[in-house]
Write a protein that binds this DNA or RNA. Structure first.
Length: 411
RNA sequence: CGGGGUGUGGCCUAGUUGGCUUAGGGCGUCUGGUUUGGGACCAGAAGAUCCUGGGUUCGAAUCCCAGCACCCCGACCA
């Protein structure tokens, strides 16, 4: 991608009013634009990062048997009334359509997935199943805050699993936990992310959250360092020790919830009449679980964890581009020629390169913007480097510069 | 939803004991020129419902009332 073709531009000044790092940095570097509190446009750079996060989530869900689908955002009132949530779900956006129809905007999709699966599940042979989607969700929060961390419109992957009995759900639930940790590992968050016991769904004693330690978080958790699990403050009065080892020396930390999974049991299969015939020919309730993770919130969290005074430092796997290639202006046509050649070569090899080919932009400005955008590698070509048939390589995360022969560049 | 803060060209802001403001500066933008290894410089130009509505006054960005928006704390977060 040529930077001269970008319609977005990084700005020098930080947005006033914003205090959270993710909002400040993402807006300043041109990843997102704020439309209203908790409502953002994703610009080319931001969309790329978001897509990469989605792709990681997608791969890990597919790996445990998930199948991607897409459900609607407009969900009829009648569906919500079946489970009683039209009245009780306080963050549901309710809106009126023409002809007296009413709708809730999708905040979560049990009310759609359950009747959907009813059309396909009739026998124990149809189980288990684990459809999921990655979709924009809407929640009418009283207070949006902290940039992408808590929005009124945000992206969420929601998977729903369907089982013949509790044991099958329990087994899959453990597999899902592992898959989640694989996601956090790929995002560079696994060392500071804890499986956290939180208040239960409607069926089980606890639900499980995945909490990433950060000052930008809004939850308080108590961690057991030995077992690498935690307890959410909301249940600390009933559970004062580590649920795994009984350790009472728990450490209080601030964290952001980056995932939440529930054992739903028959909370939703019951009202929708989702049943199957077992081996004996008897009708049984389908046992359900659900598994949420928010790519947009993850994106905000990752910025909170990965920035310095100059800007964002993206982990390699989700950086908008792997390499930020800066061409220094020169009177010699050779610099431009060699730069174009290298850009084309790298691109052909499949390396994602952001090529700063802008003219009349000072060197300082190019460097400052590269630091702001935060690609993992910075490559500079100039008269100086070409004199040695080299380019200069620098990692965003450290200070050392390295001269590398053009013929030996590898990513 | 309770409390606090903020609101001035696209962005950051000065001005806020009413008059010296035909609202000043910086960034960005446009034109011309000089520059090019850390947000470089010179000259010129365009660009403003001073959040909105009402009020007080000879006169309001500035005072009063009402509302809106954003940020923060808290509450809330199947």
């Amino acid at each position: 991608m040529r930077q001269s073709k970008f319609f977005t531009k990084a700005v020098k000044e930080l947005p006033k009013d914003e205090t959270s790092f993710n909002a400040k940095e993402l807006i300043r570097a041109g990843f997102v634009d704020k439309v209203a509190a908790g409502i953002y446009s994703f610009l080319p750079l931001g969309l790329k990062v978001h897509e990469k996060i989605c792709q990681i989530v997608r791969e890990e869900m597919d790996a445990i048997g998930g199948q991607e689908i897409s459900m609607p955002t407009l969900i009829p009132k009648e569906s919500w009334e079946t489970t009683g949530r039209w009245k009780s779900f306080d963050v549901l956006f309710r809106l009126a359509g023409a002809d007296k129809k009413e709708y809730g905007l999708g905040a979560t999709h049990e009310e759609v997935i359950t009747p959907l699966m009813k059309k396909f599940i009739s026998s124990y042979k149809d189980l288990p199943a684990a459809p999921y989607q990655i979709k924009t969700k809407f929640r009418n929060e009283l207070r949006a805050k902290a940039g992408l961390i808590r929005g009124r419109e945000f992206s969420m992957k929601d998977m729903y699993s369907f089982h013949k009995d509790q044991k099958d759900l329990d087994d899959f639930y453990e597999v899902a936990i592992e898959a989640y940790f694989k996601i956090y590992k790929r995002l560079g968050l696994e060392k500071i992310t804890y499986l956290t016991y939180a208040s239960g769904g409607s069926f089980s004693k606890y639900s499980h959250e995945f909490q990433t330690l950060t000052e930008a978080g809004e939850d308080i958790i108590y961690i057991c360092e030995k077992c690498r699990v935690a307890i959410n403050k909301e249940i600390i009065s009933e559970q004062k020790s580590c649920p795994k080892c009984g350790n009472k020396n728990l450490i209080e930390k601030k964290a952001v919830e980056v995932g939440n999974i529930f054992k739903l049991g028959n909370r939703f299969s019951k009202p929708f009449g989702l049943v199957y015939m077992d081996e004996k020919g008897e009708k049984q309730d389908v046992v359900m679980g659900c598994y949420g993770i928010g790519p947009s919130r993850l994106m905000g969290t990752i910025v909170e964890m990965n920035h310095d005074e100059r800007g964002i430092v993206w982990p390699e796997e989700i950086a908008p581009f792997k390499v930020h290639f800066i061409e220094m202006k020169s009177k010699e046509a050779k610099v431009r020629q060699e730069a174009e050649k290298l850009y084309n070569d790298l691109t052909k090899k499949g390396v994602e390169v952001l090529y700063d080919d802008r003219e009349n932009v000072s060197a300082g400005e190019k460097f400052a913007e590269a630091d702001l955008i935060g690609c993992p590698y910075r490559l500079v070509i100039s008269e100086k480097t070409l004199a040695e048939n080299c380019v200069e390589l620098k990692k965003r995360s450290d200070k050392e510069l390295k001269m590398v022969k053009i013929s030996e560049i590898k990513f």
